[in-house]
Amino acid sequence: MTTPLPLWLAPAVVASVLAPAVYLTWVLDRWVGARVAGRRTSLGQTLASPLAEAAQLMLQSSPRAERPDRVTWLLAPASLSGLAVVAVATVPLGPMLHIADAPGGIVLFGAAIALVMVAVFLHGWSANSLFPLMGGYRFIALALSFEMPLALVLIAAALPAESLRFSDIVQSQVDVWNVVRQPLGLPLYLIATLGASFWGPLAFPDAPDLAGGTTAESSGAALLVWTAARYALLVALCAVGAAVFLGGWLGPGLPGPIWLAFKTAGLVATVVVIGHHVARVRLEDFVVVAWTVLIPLALVDVFLSGLLVL
């Protein structure tokens, strides 16, 4: 059993892990986007692009929507980043290093992802404007569809570990990783990741066809926090995916946190590349596919994993 970090150190560790990860994800996203668009950008430009965007947002004047629910509007980006932090904190960084390795870690992560739905809907609703509200509705339809497969594949991964604790799940993959043992798990989890971070083929709520969706009325610092929170959420989802399906800190030679960082970076890169190369699907089609194909597949995953454990 691993020992927890002292309580006062935990926020510092989360910040020092999350901040570079968010920055690098942002850079990667802009770089892949520029490559796909055929633009040649220098390394310095690419590295500076998140900072430039952030500086531009910070200098913008504050938004003026007509009679928004101000408290909720400010609270939504803050709570989205808070939920991303909670989700990151559940991931054990190494065999002896973890931040909040709760006995019910998987359920804690699931609860955080479920509350993402609340944050996104409130972000859309509170602006008191048409397009943001439509974005919020879209995310509800999306979230209700991807959450069941997400929960089921996580339960399947918990079966061989006989524990809901993330470090036990990582430990149970010493011999063979879950991605091999449960081949259905990682693909389904990646689809759910695309949905939970509303990315690429599933980028419904903040889509350009809604003039930015839930962010249509946002600008300035609030929009900056929201954008950063989305990258943080993506990092959190990928870190959990790396811990649950790719063996987390396990790996030869290098120390555990480095391996976890490599695996997380691999998943993030996969999602970002998918996001720039795969066209958006139709929401109706995705909902139908989620309920008729993905959930049954996730159930098959649970049953097969249970059989293997028996």
């Binding site: 006995p103 019910g104 359920v107």
Partner: peptide
Amino acid sequence: AEFLGLVLILMMAGEMTIMAVFMV
């Protein structure tokens, strides 16, 4: 009762969102 508490949040996030949609 850690598990029950977390499951309560998990359930309620979905249920209250659906409730909000119904209300609107």
